[in-house]
Design a protein around this nucleic acid. Structure first.
Lengths: 232, 232
DNA sequence: TGACCAGAAGTGGTCTGAGGACTTACTCTT
DNA sequence: AAGAGTAAGTCCTCAGACCACTTCTGGTCA
């Protein structure tokens, strides 16, 4: 077994066995090297691997710790890889988002939360009054993010957020021939979702959300823009 | 900006910009070090990070390559972190699986594929005739995996597979007082799913799959076994 | 007594250099 | 033309040194 793999397995085992729970601190690097039987370089590469996956966190000068192992945070790490997925794969991911977000939107509609409805209405007012692509993207993310959060499952919120972020790199809302038509269709979709939530109709909310995202899928399929995602 | 972060950003940028597409080969390590302005240690830690995320693959003696950037493969990498998530988080993830698998099962039912139905029936015959916990787990995974694959979205298949794998670490089917009752309920759930698929009823299939997984969630909530996942 | 500051110890971050292990391509032999 | 052997290219691992940051400790001063 390769040295780095040995270190990786050892670190994972320390967590899986319950020896180190969420938030626990690992021994110092030299001690871990002895314990795992690898050099410091190999150990550090293993630590980086688990760090990229959101399982371990190194704090300079302080130590190395197990993260909270919160599923939403771990899924958030996916954005590093999802942002590099080509368009073909993004379409597969959008189906996941469509299904999950329909579910979350239905749950949000069942909650009967006037404050949420006021927030959403405010976001839509701002969204409908702008034509700036970046602002559209941010407000769209806020709208859907608020709804997903109201759905009550942070994991769903994180997962849909990652996928939405990837889709946003393909700029549908570039000023162009179809801009007005696309924008109007999008705005109507958002209003339909809000209406279903306001009338506390989960089934209608799921349908509206599903249709709205399906529309996005159609635009992406049709546009097939140059797959050149912008990094943050 | 820290050295490793600089290397990480540089590597990602090379992929995101389109300079290196899926399957492309990176320059040798010394050359990359020059280009990115970091030492070999830092570069290698960055490569490991992207390797853990399924974006980059290093082949000993050959070179470092961009992976196929296939979303299913990238999601599969999640199992390394998901397998360490505590029970509380697993319940959130199971809701994701329930929603996605209901969707995939409905799609499978709409496909009208006699060969699939024969395969599923065979798996259930074997599943119903065993009481071995490990075999139950494998056959259960095969049953649900076949259905998800028939659903047509590999990303959904990968995602549900990762979550199912995590849930499997909690051994519901340990021989005990409730074993027979649990096993019978589980078997009935599987038959209900297969019946809906055989009668080509997507709505019934979605409902049956959703109910079956919801039952698993209930068992996990009730049992709250010692969270000691087994590593492969 | 309390707050603040300086130093010391602990810990991760980075760099350099060396040798080993594996893959690949080439060349020579049969 | 096929095979074995060789050489070049590349990643893997280790070791040691030094730097940067955090944390704790002890003392000082108001």
């Amino acid at each position: 077994m390769a040295a780095t793999d040995k270190a990786l397995a050892g670190l994972r085992q320390m967590i899986a066995s319950g020896e180190l729970g969420p938030g626990a601190k690992f021994p110092p690097e030299p001690e871990l090297c002895d314990h795992l039987g690898v050099s410091r370089s190999s150990l550090r590469e293993a630590v980086r691997s688990l760090g990229a996956l959101g399982v371990i966190e190194s704090r300079h000068g302080s130590g190395t710790y197990v993260t909270a192992l919160d599923p939403a945070a771990i899924i958030g790490r996916f954005s590093l890889s999802v942002e590099l997925i080509p368009l073909e794969g993004v379409l597969e991911l959008l189906e996941v988002r469509r299904v999950l977000e329909a579910h979350a939107t239905a749950a949000a509609a069942a909650r009967q939360d006037p404050e949420l409805e006021a927030q959403l209405s405010s976001v839509l007012d701002r969204l409908e009054s702008t034509t700036d692509a970046t602002e559209i993207q941010h407000l769209d993310a806020e709208f859907h993010g608020l709804i997903c959060a109201a759905g009550g499952n942070p994991t769903v919120t994180a997962l849909t957020g990652v996928i939405r972020g990837r889709g946003g790199h393909y700029r549908i809302f570039e000023p162009g021939a179809d801009f007005d038509a696309i924008k109007q269709t999008s705005d109507r979709g958002h209003r339909a979702i809000l209406a279903a939530i306001t009338t506390r109709d989960p089934a209608a909310a799921a349908t509206a959300a599903s249709a709205h995202i399906a529309q996005t899928e159609l635009w992406l399929r049709a546009l097939r823009p140059v797959p050149q995602p912008a990094l943050p």
